[in-house]
Each structure stands twice: as structure tokens, then as C-alpha cells.
Design a protein around this nucleic acid. Structure first.
Length: 596
DNA sequence: TCTATATCACCC
DNA sequence: AAACGGGTGATATAGA
């Protein structure tokens, strides 16, 4: 197509692709399952050539029936859904992808607008005519019912599928000028598109689960709770079945002359911290505290596990304002309480590796702010202790064990700083006086001056209307008329750049053939045959460190690796072991021992 | 009795 | 005046 005609079709923009294929799938998906493609409509942007295929036609193809090579671009809205269908069909993923959902999120991140982030919402945002949401819902219901569909219904479903593709054309045209504003801008968009492929790959692979143990726990769930409650509540009488009653607890407190802290609303403060504190002064409530704590951690109702024993769930990429994934906490194994991860268990002949970036946000802060002293603290391997030394609170030869108390206070300061914590907040958290917290924060400011100058400049800039951007082009701008939270703004570059690093890592791991199972914000779970584990871990570690170097001016975060070999299970021995064993005891399964 | 809101717990 | 960033979700209580 001649350049001038192309420019007209794209509102003055140019896209450097010979073919642009816009596509949408309809599919059926059950909890924890891979999607089952029902139909696909694809249309080429320049020629208008359209392909409509039904389920059985799709199954017969070994690859997408259109150009997915380097001179073509695939366009979709929330492409991980389309790629989930590609993978279910065994099709290779396209080389280039523009995901208009991801781009819509970038372009509107931080600003409030009324239409939401759905395809229809984005279309309305650009003034494009759409079908009604009701009509869409009716069709979704018809599809999700799973068929069989009459001939007329098939036609209706294909028409509906085509109507979404029809929206992609004007949407692409509306967004194209911004997407192509600079070559770099388009490059970042294509990277986000590649990440949607990695997302689909992780959703496809899933996390292997010990289904036997899960079934036993689920079957005994209510019994476990009842047993725990009945035993303990005998002395209190504050439970009504499985429900803790605040008024009954108030009566108990009155009868026992215990003064209890209240919230501003006048209600009793019932959080775990308050309970712990009060249990120290009034030991008779400590059993109740332990019970409430245990019940709070007992949550694994709706883990999404497919018939093949893999935990699969929508990762919801680019959902948070820092660009992080935001999967459902109840469906995803990494969203549940830590002890539940004991259910993660590699299949026979395989192993898993949990690779995480050590103190990633601290490292990012040091690199982006060019604070050399802060970077040296990171490189020391123990930033908390090094801050103590830098600030003159510990001698140069201090160690983690020789100066545990001061290191612990400094840890709270260092972590709190990244969230914009006040002296009051740090004091609460670290259990020290506000005056001491204030002093420690001041020392942090004095010793990491470059970091503070950078961080405060960011906050000032955003409040003055500027846009923040990560190395890979994720953006944030404070919406007009909305009030910015300075702590949020302060933290944004660190968390968002962490999300960049994760995305870059996932894409390169996928493309290097590493089997990625799940992203966990600053960590990635991978799977490998037992005999290839060590090699795959080193390959992955190298890729993750390189992702840091590429985004952090040549500097790498350390990557810690923990491996789990069949028949062992995953276990967080620090945070999850106690509860895991409590549950195992109450359902009559063996407790955790040496990996099993 | 049903729904909305507040509170709390969990994750990184 | 509040006092920790980004989130999801369950549950108890208040309110219609």
C-alpha cells in the first residue's frame, strides 16, 4: 500500500509491517483448564481479507492461517487470551504483536476515565461505536455454555467474534499516532506484545499440584475448622458456629475485666497485632489469638487446578498501576497463604526451581538514582547491616549475628524508606521509639543523598504534572484533578521497574526454551527434567541477571535459586512449615520431613 | 433477609 | 491529618 494511503488509514501514522492481522478467538475455559477454542476471526488491516474458522477447522491447522512472521504484526485486545488458543492448538506464536489492551493501559495509566479497560471501554474512550454490553454478555453466556450450538448459533457466534475484530481496526487507527510517536515507543509496545506470549505460555504450563493432598484437605476443610474452634472456644464462648462474634467477645472482656483497644469507629480492634499485644498482658486470651491466627491462614477454597493437576489462572498482566500482574489471590497458588505452597510438587522425572531477585527494589533504587554508596551497600550482600555501618551505628567488622538488634532496626528503615514510611510508621513496625526512628531516617537521608534527591524529584515532577516512565516504557501520570499520594509516587519507579525486569526475563526465558510456570513479582518458577535442572537453573539465572543489566545501567541483582526435585514438595520452612504441619496433623497426613 | 461497607489477612 | 507501596479476597457487621 502506498505510504500516503497507509497514513490516512492510520491517522497519519506509519506501521512498518507488510501485513497487519487483527484477530479474536471465542473459547470455553473451565477453572484451571486450558482454553478450548471455539472459533476465530482474523482480518488483514490493509487488504480487508477476512478468515473465519470454526473449532474443527482450527484443530486441523498446525499454525495460524495467516502471516505471523517478522514482516507481519498480530493485533489483538488482551492477546494472552488469543495466544492461549494458539498454544492449545499447538500453533507457534507470532513474531510481532501489538496488544491494544496493554497499550491502552499505558496510555491511560493513572488517569481516571469512565469506561474501564475492556475492549468496549477502550473503544468508547476513543469515541468508537460499539455493541451494547448486554448483547456482549448474552453472547458470552451462549459460548461459555460450551455447545453444542445450532447452525444459527454458530453463525451468530462467528458474527459476534467478527464484531470484536471490527473494533480493532478503528482502535488501532486511533492509537497508532501515539504508538508510533518514536521508534522506541513502538519497540516497547512490541515488547509488551511479546510478554503477552510469555503470559499465555505460563498460563498454559501452570504449576504442578499434589492433587491427592489437596483433595484430602478440601474434603476435611470444615472438620478442621470445627475441631480447632470447639476445642479452644470452650473457655471463651465467643464463636457462633464458625463465626467469631464481636459482641460475645465484648461480654467476655467485660466479665473478665479486660480493657480492650477500640478503633475510631468504637468497634473492638481485632487485628492480629492487637491480639498479640493484649495476649502479653492478659495471657488468658492467647489461645484465642492463636486460634484466630490459624483460622485466618486457612484459606484455599477455590484454587484453580485443572484435570491434569496443574494450577492455572489468568495472570492479569498490566493490571496494577505499576504494571505488575495481578492474578486472583484465591485461584493462584502464589496468592494464597504461604503454607499452601506445600501443595506445589513436581511431577515424576521433573524438578522445579524458584528463582528470585534478592532485595530487588533496593538494587533498583540504587541504580536508578545513581547512588553509589547505596549500590555498594547492595553489593555488600547485606544492605541492612551495611546501612548500619555507613551510618556509624555498627563497626566495620560487625556481622549479622554480632549486631542483630541494630541490623533489625536498620532493616525496617531501609525497607520502610522504599514505601515512603514515616518515623511514626517505622517506629510502630520496628517496635522502637518515634524519636529513634526519626533519627535513623535522618541518617538514611544523610548517607544516601543521591537516592533521596532522585526520589523527591520524582514526587515533585509528578505532582507538577510530569509523566514517570520505566526503562521499558511503562508510564504513570497523575490524573487531572486527582490527588497524588507522595508515598505511592515515591515507590512507583522501583516497583514498576521491577515489573519491567520480570517481563523482560519471562520473555527471554520463554524464547530460550526454559519452561516457565509462574511469575511472582520478583521471582519466577520454572520446571525442568531432573537431568537438565542444574543447566536450566544456570541458564535462567543468567537470563534474569542480564535482564537487570539491560535495564539497570549494567548492574545485576543477585538471583537466588531454590530447587525442588520430585518427590519432594515446595516448602517455605520459615513462614509456612508450622501451619502446614498443623493441617497435616489434623487431616491425618504425614508431616513435612526432609523435602517430602 | 439481602447488600454494602469496614476490617482484617494474605501475597510481593 | 495521617502516618506503608502495589494488590485480592473473606468475613463480620451495619444498614436498607
Amino acid at each position: 500500500m502506498p505510504i500516503e494511503k497507509q497514513a490516512t488509514a492510520l491517522n497519519g501514522a506509519r506501521l512498518p509491517f507488510a501485513e497487519i492481522w487483527m484477530a479474536d478467538f471465542e473459547f470455553v475455559v473451565g477453572s484451571g483448564e486450558k482454553p478450548r477454542p471455539v472459533c476465530m476471526v482474523a482480518e488483514e488491516f490493509w487488504s480487508g481479507r477476512q478468515i473465519r474458522l470454526w473449532e474443527d477447522d482450527l484443530q486441523r491447522l498446525k499454525a495460524a492461517p495467516f502471516n505471523t512472521g517478522p514482516n507481519a504484526c498480530f493485533v489483538a485486545y488482551f492477546a494472552s487470551a488469543e495466544f492461549g488458543c494458539f498454544l492449545a492448538l499447538g500453533w507457534p506464536l507470532p513474531t510481532n504483536t501489538l496488544d491494544l489492551f496493554a497499550e491502552h493501559r499505558v496510555l491511560t495509566n493513572g488517569t481516571q476515565f469512565p469506561h474501564g479497560n475492556s475492549l468496549l471501554g477502550a473503544a468508547r474512550h476513543y469515541g468508537i461505536d460499539t455493541i451494547g454490553a448486554d448483547e456482549k454478555e448474552t453472547m458470552r453466556d451462549l459460548i461459555m455454555a460450551g455447545g453444542p450450538w445450532s447452525e444459527a448459533e454458530r453463525v451468530a457466534i462467528l458474527d459476534y467474534c467478527a464484531s470484536d475484530v471490527d473494533l480493532l481496526r478503528p482502535l488501532l487507527a486511533s492509537m497508532a499516532p501515539q504508538l508510533t510517536a518514536t521508534p522506541q515507543r513502538l519497540g516497547h509496545a512490541i515488547w509488551r506484545g511479546r510478554y503477552m506470549g510469555a503470559v499465555a505460555t505460563m498460563e498454559h504450563n501452570g504449576v504442578p499440584i499434589d492433587v491427592g493432598a489437596l483433595d484430602v484437605i478440601n474434603a476435611n476443610w470444615l472438620d478442621i475448622q470445627d475441631t480447632l474452634i470447639v476445642e479452644v472456644d470452650r473457655a471463651y464462648g465467643v464463636y457462633d458456629g464458625r463465626t467469631f462474634k464481636a459482641d460475645r467477645f465484648a461480654a467476655y472482656l467485660a466479665a473478665n475485666d479486660i480493657p480492650w483497644p477500640r478503633l475510631d469507629t468504637g468497634r473492638l480492634a481485632l487485628d492480629d497485632d492487637t491480639f498479640r499485644g493484649m495476649a502479653r498482658a492478659y495471657p488468658q486470651v492467647s489461645a484465642l489469638q492463636e486460634l484466630r491466627h490459624a483460622l485466618g491462614a486457612l484459606r484455599l477454597n477455590s484454587l484453580a487446578v485443572g484435570p491434569d493437576g496443574r494450577n492455572r489462572t489468568l495472570l492479569s498482566p498490566f493490571r496494577s498501576k505499576t504494571g505488575r500482574n495481578q492474578p486472583s489471590n484465591s485461584k493462584a497458588i502464589f496468592g494464597t497463604a504461604v503454607w499452601v505452597r506445600g501443595l506445589i510438587k513436581p511431577e515424576a522425572g521433573t524438578a522445579l526451581a524458584y528463582l528470585d531477585f534478592a532485595s530487588q527494589e533496593f538494587a533498583i533504587a540504587a541504580c536508578l538514582s545513581r547512588d553509589e554508596k547505596m549500590w555498594r551497600a547492595y553489593e555488600s550482600g547485606d544492605p541492612y547491616l551495611q546501612f548500619a555501618k555507613d551510618a556509624g551505628l555498627a563497626p566495620p567488622d560487625a556481622t549479622k549475628s554480632s549486631h542483630e538488634a541494630v541490623r533489625d532496626r536498620c532493616k525496617h528503615i531501609v525497607l520502610g524508606v522504599q514505601y515512603g514510611m514515616s518515623a511514626y510508621g517505622v517506629a510502630q513496625r520496628a517496635g522502637i521509639l518515634v524519636a529513634e526512628a526519626r533519627e535513623l531516617l535522618q541518617l538514611h537521608r544523610e548517607h544516601y543523598r543521591a537516592f533521596w534527591a532522585w526520589a523527591e524529584q520524582n514526587v515533585d515532577n509528578v505532582l507538577a504534572g510530569a509523566t514517570l516512565s520505566t526503562p521499558m516504557g511503562w508510564q504513570f501520570r497523575q490524573g487531572m484533578g486527582t490527588e497524588g499520594n507522595p508515598r505511592s509516587i515515591l515507590n512507583w519507579p522501583m516497583q514498576s521497574t521491577g515489573a519491567d525486569i520480570l517481563r523482560l526475563s519471562c520473555v527471554r526465558l520463554m524464547e530460550a526454551g526454559v519452561k516457565i510456570c509462574a511469575p511472582v513479582h520478583d521471582a519466577i518458577l520454572i520446571e525442568a527434567p531432573l537431568d537438565a535442572l542444574d543447566e536450566q537453573v544456570e541458564l535462567a539465572r543468567g537470563i534474569m541477571e542480564q535482564a537487570c543489566r539491560d535495564l539497570l545501567r549494567g548492574r545485576a541483582c543477585r538471583v537466588d535459586a531454590e530447587t525442588i526435585k520430585h518427590p519432594d514438595r515446595y516448602m517455605d520452612t520459615k513462614r509456612g512449615l508450622g501451619m502446614w504441619n498443623t493441617v497435616m496433623r489434623s487431616v491425618g497426613l504425614p508431616e513435612y520431613e526432609g523435602g517430602r
